[in-house]
Design a protein around this nucleic acid. Structure first.
Lengths: 350, 350
DNA sequence: AAGCCTATTGCATTCGAAGTCGTTTTCTGT
DNA sequence: ACAGAAAACGACTTCGAATGCAATAGGCTT
């Protein structure tokens, strides 16, 4: 097309002598003296090409630096080998690890990652719009999806796996970490160590996981005869945890704080130790949930429940691939349990 | 084709009544009673479609949930609207923030992010192979590239912007943060406060940025008459910084440690305070470089130089887009300067 | 009302690789 | 050496959208 234009324009100006040609299977075919079909077959598994032809083609491809065009492949095979990974906020300190593991594992399976991050939950519809356009084979979502949105995946036959969330009634594949066991251990351990006055730092009120967590802890505390536990909320950030802890400690005389995630727990530890001069764990036990890297740091040594991120991402990836290959596989909920990490931020009896 | 097959096979078996049709521009066209061309034009900027036709088409598209197939668009327009983001190790605590900003800014420009992470530097060639296949319009790379690899981008006319690295001789667009100014301030401030015995915790020996940093600090120290500064190395991780600091402190009687990044500096602080019982900053000043979130935490309040990540990613994205649109734009090196954050981990005089 | 001009529209082609199908070449076995 | 089977090969079509071009419709001028 461009060429045509240049030819019709009478002059001989050649603005780009080294016009970069993409290098297509036709170019390789011409150079190797074979058909385009042969080139195509040469680059696919299990197609029959004679060793002689293959050598010719590979040599030609090599000289041209030819690589099959994945976009064209995607169009004809209806398989883009793309998977959307949608993560609500990457600044969460817990998610980068998840993301790194997911991309590594998907890459190992020959799948590329199309990354979408959400600054606000409201962006999700725009993101999904792009997801539809790019003909992804599947998606791993660590963000809140409405039933309608999940249904949209089903309608379009796009495999979907939720990470650290469940469908909340909608049948869908999901991977998450149950906190019941860890929670029980933590609560019972704290109670056994003599804690009586608890405070909870929860996530935002609209966080499903967060709420379940709070309910679970309260239920367990109730069993131990402890009721009316004060709850404050943070946004899963250090500052949020710090502020919430200050409010709790100002209003109540606590001997244990249970935070919904590690980073808030670290904020709470600092609020207690540094701002309020309360010794941790002697006067106040603080526990978190996640097992992020900074929780291990010597200044904190947080007592927490570590999520098995490696196994969870592994599960998410294999569930996704299963569903890509077998689209009508039913919903499945895979629950992992966390490991209790006995740090030094809480007095905890077994 | 599938339809043809079903018709020729005499029987009337219809294995999937709800056969999921992708919903193409042809389907929309048929439904709206117009040509496929009209549908295409209706979804592009600046194409002429009468208001009447547009309404018809949009209605039909809406009913079918039609979205243009970005893969097919990419094939014909030779613009995938995909950009590869290649990051060496996401677990670095500094990169998640960068990644989040990059994807947000690229998304805002209508560009999708194809994410590649490297567990080892050696994987880069496999990653590039995939990058070529996916016909990305450009790439932002925060990883070490050989001159040959950079040349490969040029050959294929793929826009390239290095992040936090420079070409090291090879002409290429790059964004980075110069540390000279921050370094000078830090070193001079420490010297002014009376520090004489320095130790440096550098990154791995093969890290270009890391090395330049070390040389810069040494040069500035030399000006103050301080030579033979002991250097130990970490891998930019907390544990690495912690271990390096222990070695340095065991072997020398230091009054200041300069670390190549924040996370190592935090490890060093803990090594000093907790393992060696050295007061920071009274007996030992520790400074870092980056300005990651945990550096601000109350337990640390690290004195550091904060990289202007927002402006840097902004620059990377706009440089990349410029180069996508104007492929023969020359190399350009954009240097930002960091802000000195006066924390409480160092005695520093202005 | 005739003559122009411009805004719409559809047809046909194109992007690059995959896959179908019919043809040719290469093996086997006898 | 020959029939028959299997492997290798190439022409052609296809995926879904974009676009040059020609045809048409509509509006405006005089």
């Amino acid at each position: 097309m461009k060429c045509a234009n240049r030819q019709t324009s009478g002059e001989m100006i050649e603005p780009k002598p080294t016009r970069r040609r993409a290098g297509t299977s036709y170019d390789v075919a011409r150079r190797a003296g074979v058909s385009q079909s042969a080139v195509s077959r040469c680059f696919r598994e299990g197609e029959s090409v004679s060793p002689k032809t293959r050598a010719l083609i590979l040599a030609a491809a090599d000289e041209l630096g030819y690589r099959p065009n994945a976009i064209a492949q995607g169009l004809i095979t209806r398989r883009s080998n793309l998977v959307a990974v949608i993560i609500s906020n990457l600044t969460n300190l817990y998610y980068p690890e998840v993301l790194a593991e997911l991309t590594a594992k998907l890459s190992a399976q020959g799948i590329r990652v199309l990354l979408f991050t959400l600054a606000a939950e409201s962006e999700i519809d725009q993101v999904l719009d792009q997801v539809w356009r790019y003909q992804v084979d599947g998606a791993i979502v660590a963000a809140r999806l409405s039933p309608t949105q999940m249904e949209a995946f089903r309608k379009r036959d796009i495999a979907l796996v939720l990470y650290n969330r469940d469908g909340g009634g909608t049948p869908v594949a999901s991977v998450s970490c149950e906190f019941a066991a860890g929670e029980t251990l933590l609560v019972d351990g704290l109670v056994a160590a003599g804690c009586r006055s608890f405070g909870i730092i929860a996530g935002p009120a609209d966080s499903t996981v967060g709420e379940a967590h709070v309910r679970g802890v309260c239920a367990r505390l109730a069993i131990a005869g402890i009721d009316n536990v004060p709850v404050d909320r943070g946004d899963f950030s250090y500052e949020g945890g710090h502020a919430a802890a200050l409010r709790l400690l100002k209003a109540h005389d606590l001997d244990a704080i249970i935070a919904a995630n590690d980073v808030m727990a670290l904020g709470a530890m600092d609020a207690a130790r540094i701002d309020c001069g309360i010794a941790v764990p002697e006067q106040l036990s603080v526990v978190g949930y996640d097992g992020v890297a900074p929780a291990k740091w010597r200044s904190y040594r947080l007592t927490t429940v570590r999520q098995p991120v490696g196994r969870m991402t592994e599960a998410a990836v294999s569930m996704l691939i299963e569903r890509i290959e077998k689209p009508d596989l039913g919903p499945e909920r895979r629950l992992f349990s966390g490991d209790l990490i006995r740090g030094e931020s809480a007095r905890l009896l077994p």
